[in-house]
Computed example of a mutant assay.
Amino acid sequence: MMKLKTNICNFLTIVLSCLLFLTITSPIKAQNQSNSQQKNEFWRNVQFGGGLGLGIGSGYTNIMVAPSGIYNINPYVSMGLGIQYSYVKQSDLFDSHIYGGSLISLFNPIPEVQLSAELEQLRVNNTFTEATPKIKDNFWNTALFLGAGYRNQNVTIGLRYNILYRESNYVYSQGWMPFVRVYF
């Protein structure tokens, strides 16, 4: 079962990477335009955004940074890349470093609705400090999020579901996740 999951994830990664490459390289304009005009056309269709997170409590710290960028292929379809890093620490229990990247595709059938698919690959480095000696648990985690949200200009609020979620997953506590997505 795990081998099948890995093969599916590898296949999806390859397919999404190829689609992203083709869609970013396909909007080349006529040959009579200068290189600077072509570059300007490309950058007009690029948007940047991402997320920041900070959670602090009694002996608990959670810091997250997740920048991303998308290329608007047309008014309905966008594709992009993101990176993520987070640090989580619970005093006298554990600390965790999580980092990786994602491929994201967005579809806007009408201006107010945004559908999304995001393939995320994270490296997780956990150290459980409550045990003596300390226990290290390092692994890769793959997530495939399918989502839908309400969109108003460059802000989308919605809900997504990790179809690869398992209860033994130590990255996300559940499959459903609300999100706020902002691109400038």
Results as ranks from 00 to 15, higher is better:
Phe128Pro: 00
Gly101Cys: 13
Ile157Gln: 04
Tyr150Gln: 06
Phe42Glu: 01
Val65Ala: 12
Ala143Gly: 00
Gln174Val: 02
Ser168Asp: 14
Gln47Thr: 09
Tyr87Ile: 09
Phe94Cys: 02
Gly147Thr: 10
Asn126Arg: 14
Ile104Phe: 03
Leu81Glu: 02
Asn141Lys: 11
Gly69Leu: 14
Ser173Gly: 10
Thr142Gly: 08
Gln84Leu: 13
Pro109Gly: 05
Val124His: 10
Gln47Pro: 01
Gly51Cys: 03
Ile110Gln: 05
Asn169Asp: 15
Tyr87Glu: 08
Asp95Ile: 02
Thr129Met: 07
Gly149Arg: 07
Tyr85Thr: 08
Lys136Met: 04
Ile63Asp: 08
Ser78Asp: 09
Val88Arg: 13
Ile157Arg: 06
Gly100Cys: 06
Asp92Ile: 04
Asp92Arg: 11
Pro111Met: 05
Val124Glu: 06
Ile56Ala: 13
Ile163Arg: 04
Asp95Arg: 13
Tyr170Ser: 05
Tyr60Cys: 01
Leu144Met: 14
Val113Glu: 07
Gly51Asn: 14
Gln84Cys: 00
Phe48His: 02
Ile73Glu: 00
Val65Leu: 15
Gly53Ile: 10
Ser173Asp: 15
Val113Pro: 03
Gln90Glu: 14
Asn108Leu: 02
Leu115Cys: 10
Glu120Thr: 15
Asn72Met: 12
Thr129Ser: 13
Ser58Val: 01
Lys136Tyr: 11
Gly100Met: 06
Pro178Tyr: 12
Ala117Thr: 13
Glu130Phe: 15
Leu106Pro: 03
Asn74Thr: 02
Gly147Asp: 10
Gly69Asn: 06
Gly100Asn: 03
Ala148Glu: 05
Thr132Ser: 14
Pro178Gln: 11
Gly147His: 12
Leu54Thr: 05
Ser173Ile: 00
Arg160Gln: 15
Trp176Lys: 00
Lys134Gln: 09
Leu164Asn: 07
Asp92Asn: 15
Gly82Pro: 01
Leu119Thr: 01
Val77Thr: 03
Pro178Glu: 11
Gly100Val: 06
Ile83His: 00
Ile63Val: 15
Ser96Cys: 11
Ala143Arg: 14
Asp92Tyr: 12
Val65Glu: 03
Tyr161Phe: 08
Tyr172Gln: 12
Asn125Gly: 02
Ser116Phe: 01
Thr129His: 07
Asn125Leu: 13
Ile163Ala: 05
Gln90Ala: 08
Trp140Gln: 11
Phe145Val: 05
Gln121Leu: 12
Ala143Thr: 03
Gly82Thr: 04
Ala143Trp: 01
Val113Ile: 15
Leu54Lys: 00
Asn169Phe: 10
Ile70Asp: 06
Tyr172Val: 06
Gly57Leu: 03
Gln84Gly: 03
Ile98Gly: 00
Arg160Phe: 08
Tyr87His: 14
Gly55Trp: 00
Ala131Asn: 15
Asp137Ile: 04
Ser58Phe: 08
Arg160Trp: 12
